[in-house]
């Protein structure tokens, strides 16, 4: 059994906005084993990006704990955090705004090495940057190019390179391929999977694209308005999803095969606001199975089937389980 690398317990992140408290992440609990990928799926505004940032410590948690390799990171001092950054990295969604336009490829990838003083001489730095560029598939001659001179795919490779520079063990990938064209997207996905295989990396893969998440993840966590809705293995999620939201989400994906149009359970309505949510299941207003209890009582995550967690009052009835 692989050991647990990351453990998140009852993590909460609220933002103060003019209309009240925005519950971006509300009571999220999960663990990831070393070398595995956890996919985090949800629609815009469900708090999936915030979750990644809180786990990394880029945002302070409102409540809850994050343990990395057995150490509690949420209570770490400034120095300890600085050290943790070497092990925990992030790849951003937008390859356009996440790279400083006034720095060359080499400077961007070399910056983390400089910050941590990992290279003693200039030659050593050059060598290490060249090696990273080779790993992520960037040609040597691009070392002195600026990001705006490159296309989206290669910019994203720079972002991957920057994250890899410190040789982390864990990377949060925040929608790393959603800004890319399909043919380029596949190249980046392959790169990330190769890296995982070679280096035993652990990923949190945040995305709204279910086919991508199925392709890359071992486990999947579905979020809705800051709450966990369903968590299970990737195969289970696509074969026997239990939560009504997950069902609706899967039914909504357009399938590139003719005649694939299945019996659709179209979700009606739109996302409600995560600001000062009322008690009760947050999905209840869009849920066709919702009963009175759903509007008054918060559902809790429970293990409905082995290693298959769902947060729904009526999950057994809906799915005909005992």
């Amino acid at each position: 059994m692989a050991k647990t690398l990351l453990e998140v317990k009852h993590l909460k992140k609220y933002f103060k906005v003019s209309a009240g408290l925005l519950h971006a992440v509300d009571d999220v609990t999960f663990t990831i084993e070393e070398g595995k990928t956890l996919g985090v799926v949800g629609e815009s505004g469900c708090g999936k990006s915030t979750l990644g940032r809180v786990v990394l410590g880029l945002l302070d948690a409102t409540d809850g704990e994050v343990y990395f390799d057995g150490k509690e990171t949420t209570k770490a001092t400034k120095e300890e955090r600085h050290e943790l950054r070497k092990d925990m990295q992030i790849i951003f969604q937008d390859p356009f705004s996440s790279l400083n336009p006034r720095m060359t490829v080499k400077e961007i990838i070399g910056e983390p090495l400089k910050i941590y003083g990992l290279c003693k001489t200039k030659e050593e730095l050059d060598e290490r940057v060249a090696k990273i560029m080779e790993t992520v598939g960037l040609a040597d001659r691009l070392a002195f190019s600026y990001p705006h001179e490159l296309d989206g795919g290669r910019r994203q490779r720079i972002g991957v390179g920057r994250a890899l520079a410190l040789e982390p063990r864990f990377i949060v990938c925040d929608e790393p391929v959603s800004a890319l064209d399909v043919s380029i997207q596949a190249q980046i996905l392959n790169l990330m999977m190769d890296l995982q295989e070679q280096r035993g990396l652990t990923y949190i893969f945040v995305t709204h694209d279910l086919s991508v998440v199925k392709h890359i993840s071992d486990d999947i966590l579905v979020m809705y308005l800051g709450c966990m809705v369903e968590k299970c293995s990737s195969d289970d999620l696509f074969d026997k999803q239990l939560h009504p939201y997950t069902k609706g989400l899967l039914a909504a994906i357009p399938i590139p095969t003719i005649g694939a149009k299945k019996e659709r359970v179209m979700l009606t309505g739109e996302l409600s606001s995560p600001i000062e949510p009322k008690p009760g299941c947050r999905f209840a207003v869009r849920c066709r199975y919702a009963k009175d209890k759903c509007f008054t009582e918060n559902p809790v995550m429970e293990e409905v089937l082995p290693n298959h967690f769902v947060s729904c009052h009526y999950v057994r009835e809906i799915n005909g389980l005992d």
């Binding site: 815009s44 709204h208 279910l210 989400l249 039914a251 909504a252 357009p254 179209m266 979700l267």
Partner: peptide
């Protein structure tokens, strides 16, 4: 748009 809205 989001997938569920896209479908609608």
């Amino acid at each position: 748009l989001d997938v569920t809205i896209q479908a609608q």
